[in-house]
Design a protein around this nucleic acid. Structure first.
Lengths: 202, 202
DNA sequence: TTAATTCTGCACCGATCGGTATCTAAGTTT
DNA sequence: AAACTTAGATACCGATCGGTGCAGAATTAA
């Protein structure tokens, strides 16, 4: 025992799995789950189909892993926003993060969590469900944070954390759609500012 | 000359083209452009591929016609909202219409103009562009209406019709995404109310 | 060296994609 | 009834879909 495995058995893979996943994420982000073919994906990843299947399982699992990477990368603003000291700052940071993430130069316009699979045929149902869960999860975290703000007296006792979370999430999703249609960063930041001009919107 | 064509030559079609288009619209609405296969579409329409091609051209034109029908049907709330007497009522009616159209029982959840083709591969680019144009058009109509409100003194002189239109459209798009994720009508109406609690959001 | 293991590259699988050719049946005009 | 035009059904087209089988190359352990 205690044999420290210095290197895995067999021929080592000839590509960087992290970078390949990053490339796959970009393709899904731009073309959506169903719109991204294995040919598109593997060409962007710089590997063959066989290598992709060996490293990631199948298209569906590749999408799930790309979504995880998206959460920890371009969408990390969401987790950071939750750590802001007040509900107002949480909402402000969340929307500002949405704006910058959906209009980042060098990345596809919009949000992978929205346009990855908003409507789908049979083959895309699993991805569609995964994204619904993903958005629900983000909304739940906002709700908890706003509930905490109510408990702390940061928000008035009558404030509705459920509604506030859905409100912020709705504006964020709308920003993503607008960005996918070509709206610029400054245009969307103005919208975000307008959405938070009276906060909380009781 | 002056021969009044009483009936078109040849065998008359054995199906109602309007109803077939309605069915196709529902399939595109639910599955998106790329997610809806010709098999899905023609089965729902109750006709054969050949009849579909003869009556509508091809899949892309079928989608465009389905989008027109959507505009005049489920999305007719938009045109009606523009006729409201004040900017506030326009925005209120527009968002209320969004809520009810995206959560209508018996129809797919969400908005065809958003989820029909938000992200797409090569084969869906044309549909994607058509929807971007469609949403831009709706936003332009809102902008003109709000400009009119400024001209009439209904909105203060400093109001920004461009921003107001984008704000309303953003919330509407967000409502569509939320609806696609299963949000209920009353939940979304609360969001719409919150978004208009201070209007205009200057 | 040898055996075991795993990655790569290529060809290939059946299924489905959007779109069409063909044939027959059905209707209209003359 | 003849001539003409179109609807409907079926089978089919080449291309692409997601996914694999297989042979060979590369590496580790013995």
């Amino acid at each position: 025992m205690e044999i420290t495995r210095k290197a895995p058995l067999g021929r080592p893979r000839g590509f960087d799995a992290d970078e390949a996943l990053e490339r796959a994420m970009m393709v899904f982000w731009e073309q959506g789950y169903e719109g991204a073919s294995l040919t598109d994906l593997t060409h962007a990843m710089g590997i063959t189909r066989k290598s992709m299947y060996a490293a990631f399982g199948n298209k569906e699992e590749l999408f799930r892993k790309a979504l995880e990477r998206y959460t920890e990368g371009p969408a990390a603003y969401a987790a950071r926003a939750l750590e802001e000291p007040s509900a107002r700052e949480v909402a402000t940071a969340f929307l500002a993060g949405s704006v910058s993430a959906t209009t980042r130069p060098g990345c596809p316009a919009g949000c992978l969590g929205v346009q990855g699979s908003l409507a789908a045929g049979d083959s895309g149902r699993a991805a569609q469900d995964a994204l619904i869960t993903w958005r629900d999860d983000g909304r739940a975290r906002l709700r908890h944070r706003f509930q905490q703000a109510v408990d702390e007296g940061d928000l008035p006792p009558g404030a509705n954390p459920e509604l506030l979370a859905r409100y912020v999430m709705t504006v964020s999703n709308g920003i993503a759609v607008q960005a996918a249609g070509g709206a610029t960063r400054s245009e969307l930041q103005q919208v975000a500012d307008a959405a938070l001009r009276n906060w909380p919107p009781v």
